[in-house]
Design a protein around this nucleic acid. Structure first.
Length: 325
DNA sequence: AAGCCGGGGTT
DNA sequence: AACCCAGGCTT
């Protein structure tokens, strides 16, 4: 008997797959603090904190930040130094400054609210395509795609396969999905994509056996083989835990801001003293280097330099003092 | 498109 | 040691 041609894989319709993911989400969704509110302020705080920062690192800081700054007004009226302090250790410290300015814009320009349309949200500094869509959807219920790294990966693997796709097709696919959604399901859908990506369809070690859509996934088979290859190739693990970014300007910027946060409120530190706190081998010949870093931080709203105006001669740098803005 | 911007956890 | 992360902005 001739071997029968391989039957076409049974594929559920686009809509069936969406409904299955939504059903999975109903039972598997993560209980996250920012999912208990639709207050635009609380949503925005979460979304800004979550920019390029893992959920597990935001959770412990989130309630604490909201306790310090419960409303638009509370945040807008607070000294920016307090906001910068409350941001530690989330990183990307300019987000704290931008969030502070966003609160002031909400109070003074938008009458205690935010615009509801993603296109208008996008005009605000610190709100990019992701955050605009997230606020529009999660706070205002707008049926728009919310494309973060998780949603991109899930859509790509699920519908487009292992080949790399252009941002353009991804957006088209995401838009098509949202348009096919039952009324009012956009927030759940977007969160379902993120949850699947965060807990099952992970970047490095996806748990395909636990995936509700495995049977209809364009990448499942490919992924299984890839995992087997990785398992074979994996060698003994050694934890090294060396200091990352040693010597990079990014590394020292972080240390500088950390030291400024440690200062008592309103106090400043001499540039040279700051140098020794930030770098154990600091020498006075490095004052210009340190001053450049601090000057950049000042332009970004993360530091204030107290000095005779515009003097950058080496001999003058000894009089420079630095503090939080 | 590429570089820059933190910092902690995972493998 | 590199990789990862509910990105955004500048050049």
């Amino acid at each position: 008997m001739k071997r029968p041609p391989k039957p076409p894989e049974p594929r559920s319709s686009f809509r069936e797959r969406m409904l299955r993911l939504l059903a999975w989400y109903q039972g598997a969704q993560r209980d996250l603090p920012w999912r208990h509110t639709r207050d635009p302020y609380a949503i925005l705080v979460a979304e800004v904190m979550l920019q390029q920062t893992q959920v597990s690192r935001v959770v412990p800081r989130y309630d604490q930040f909201l306790a310090c700054f419960p409303t638009w007004h509370a945040l807008a009226d607070a000294p920016v130094a307090d906001v910068i302090r409350a941001w530690e250790p989330l990183g990307y410290n300019r987000r704290a400054v931008r969030l502070h300015r966003l609160a002031q814009a909400a109070v003074h320009r938008w009458d205690g609210d935010l615009p509801h349309e993603p296109e208008l949200l996008r005009c605000l500094e610190g709100i990019g395509p992701y955050t605009a869509a997230a606020v529009a959807c999660f706070a205002f219920g707008a049926p728009v795609p919310v494309l973060d790294t998780n949603a991109r990966r899930v859509l790509l693997r699920l519908f487009l396969g292992p080949a790399k796709a252009q941002e353009r097709e991804l957006r088209a696919l995401a838009q098509e999905a949202v348009a096919a959604l039952p009324e009012g399901q956009a927030p759940a859908w977007n969160q379902a994509l993120m949850d699947l990506g965060a807990t099952v369809c992970t970047s490095r070690k996806p748990l395909c056996p636990r995936c509700p859509l495995r049977a209809d996934c364009r990448s499942a088979l490919w992924m299984q083989r890839a995992n087997e290859r990785v398992a074979e190739a994996r060698g003994p693990y050694r934890a090294l835990r060396l200091k990352p970014f040693r010597g990079s300007s990014r590394y020292y910027r972080g240390r500088i801001v950390h030291q400024l946060r440690l200062l008592p409120p309103g106090e400043s530190v001499a540039l040279e003293e700051l140098g020794t706190r930030v770098k154990t081998t600091f020498a006075v010949t490095e004052l210009p280097w340190l001053y450049r870093l601090v000057a950049t931080l000042e332009r970004e709203g993360l530091a204030r330099v107290e000095a005779a105006s515009g003097l950058t001669l080496n001999s003058e740098l000894g009089h420079v003092r630095v503090r939080l803005p």
